[in-house]
Amino acid sequence: MHIRAGQPVQTAAGIEAFVSAGRYKAVLCDLWGVVHNGVSVHQGAIESLRAMRAQGITVILLSNAPRASVTVREQLAGLGLPPGCYDDVVTSGDMVFRWLCEQSPRPRCYHLGQSWGLSLFGQGEISLTDDIDAADLIVCSALPFEEERISHPFYDELFTKAIAQKLPLLCANPDLTVHKGESEVYCAGALAGKYHSLGGQVRYLGKPYPEVYQFCQDRIADLRKEKVEASDILVIGDGLRTDIRGGNQAGIDSVLITSGLHRDQLGVTDHPSVLPDPKRLELAFNEMGARPNLVLSYLSW
């Protein structure tokens, strides 16, 4: 259903009624802040994903994780998410690898990130270099240091040199921050924003950008062996700037989880199971330029 600015947003204790009666064929569900917090899986999410699949809804876990989806599957298993809760996993890392492989010639990449992000580059299909002077492109997957700050002198020196060379930067995770347990940490999107503010050229792949939604729509159609429209899909996420705005732009209905990324902004940090004050929700929607169809505190059935 199309939702207009100023139109009241539904709230509920669970998602069951909203997805009943065959309203949706598929769900694109975020991971961090919705299914897990980087430390443990939310039990209500497990129950909800299983229940939706039992109703014939195809569940795609859609994440801005800057790594190959096979590694995310392994992470989810380690956190305790049963594989029967979903049909497929799509990551921004998958989109980056796909984009790199489509380029001719394929660029030599300088990886700005940590070792776990190397799955972005496949099994040797993409050339890497540690020398910024020899690179065609910077691929940013994460902050490369354990120090969670973007004002490190290393970035200033690297970015100054890269911008002088007119090197584009490909951001493998458009998220700015994420909550890991009780801590908020920077993501690649924050570094990409810094590069852009200094005059660098940046390309983003993942939510909220259109390529990933079309890819998922096509993937759902393949899995279901039938035509799937944007109106057949529901987005569930905790990010207004990424999940909800991306859904809005793609013509896809959406559900905002308020106990995740925006819990401080919405005033529910101390009581995350309580729905935010409607006025604070409206302020956040207007500030972020995104509006969901439904608001839940946690993903629960």
Rank of each mutant, 00 (worst) to 15 (best):
Y213W: 05
H262D: 05
D264N: 14
D277Q: 11
L118Y: 14
A164H: 10
N173T: 04
I244L: 06
V9P: 00
S48E: 01
I236N: 03
E226L: 07
H152Q: 12
G247E: 02
A134N: 12
L299K: 00
L167R: 08
A142N: 14
R67Y: 07
T129L: 11
P82Y: 13
Y110C: 04
N37Y: 09
A21C: 13
P168H: 05
G14C: 10
C140L: 07
I150T: 14
V255D: 03
G84I: 08
R245Q: 15
V35G: 02
S141Y: 04
S48A: 13
S297P: 06
M95W: 04
E282L: 08
E287Y: 11
M95S: 12
L294H: 02
C216K: 02
M95C: 12
D175A: 05
L81G: 06
V96E: 03
L112W: 04
L294V: 01
P276C: 08
I15T: 04
I3F: 01
N37G: 14
P292T: 11
Y86G: 01
V295R: 00
I57M: 10
D87V: 10
Q103M: 12
A26S: 08
H2M: 11
A250V: 07
G246E: 07
G124P: 10
E148A: 11
G239H: 02
V70G: 03
R67V: 09
Q103S: 09
N286V: 15
E287V: 09
G33Y: 00
M95R: 12
D130S: 15
L62Q: 12
D232A: 09
D277Y: 05
R108A: 14
S254G: 08
Q75G: 02
N248G: 08
V59T: 09
G260A: 09
Q7P: 05
D133A: 15
V90T: 13
R241G: 08
Q10Y: 11
P278L: 06
H179R: 10
A17Y: 06
P292M: 12
A5Q: 14
G38S: 07
V89A: 01
R149P: 08
P66G: 08
K180H: 13
I132K: 04
L266R: 03
A54Y: 09
S63D: 07
E229W: 03
I150W: 11
S151P: 07
G237M: 02
P66C: 10
K207N: 05
I150C: 14
D30L: 00
D136E: 10
D232L: 07
S69C: 12
I244K: 00
G124W: 10
T160F: 14
V178E: 04
Y213F: 13
V59Y: 02
Y204V: 06
N248I: 07
G22S: 08
N173A: 05
T269L: 10
Q165V: 10
